[in-house]
Amino acid sequence: MSNDRIDNKLKEYPSVWVKFAVMAVFILIMIFLGKITLQFNEITELGVRLIKGALYGLITPSWETIIDLSKNGLLYMVLETFAIGFLGTIIGAVLSIPLAFLCSHRTAPRWVNVIFITLVTVVRSFPTIMIAIMFVKTVGSGPFAGVLTMSIGSTGMITKMTMEAIEDLDNGVVEALDASGCNAFTKIRLGILPQLSAAMLSNILYRLDINVKNASILGLVGAGGIGAALIVGIEYRKWNDVGALLWGIVILVLIIELVSTKIRKSISSKD
């Protein structure tokens, strides 16, 4: 009797073979993709020598570059990279506030949402390197072009995050203000901004992290920062310079990450 019941239940045990089949197909697809794209090169003796030199450069960074306080020195380049990331984030944050409200269905009509969401999505997905190139053509090479690039890029990202934060908000307050006959501006000022500021600040700090890191590659197309010197260093195999520059990036990004994590934690613990 009881055995029958257990046998019947046993038959209901879900088959694991479906799961296996999905896994197998996935692995096969990955292998297939690898087969059609990846071409394996032999590791050359030259390559090994180069990478050894590079690694040696990392542990023996050039002190000349580190203590050089001129515009070609590490300190200035690190500072410039930071400035690009920082200004880019600030400008992006400022621009994103009105955009986020235009994108959210809570604060703007549908047709406005559609227009601005499309705009922000396109801007966000537009290749950063292309924006940088276009700004270099516009204002000339240098960190200013970098700042403009970063601003556009982070506007897209911060708008998206702010928009999501607006969507997650508690609707009660806004409804209450609606009921008391407030206009859109008052609704935003009194009902949404106070709730939003913590989430926004945290998003902006998170973005600062990423932006400073990304600012170090803008030099690739002449948009300032530490990247240009890095590329030159690698091209001419000046490994000690490269080592110094990489340590510069590491320490800069680490400090910003530490500070921003700390502030973000204190924000979230206040809630």
Partner: peptide, 23 residues
């Protein structure tokens, strides 16, 4: 790792569930 439990183990598990009345 694969989630391939033996039949005897499954039966044992079901019996245990039966004993506490939530088969």
């Amino acid at each position: 790792f694969l989630g391939l439990y033996k039949k005897t183990d499954k039966v044992k598990a079901l019996e245990a569930l039966d004993k506490v009345g939530i088969l």
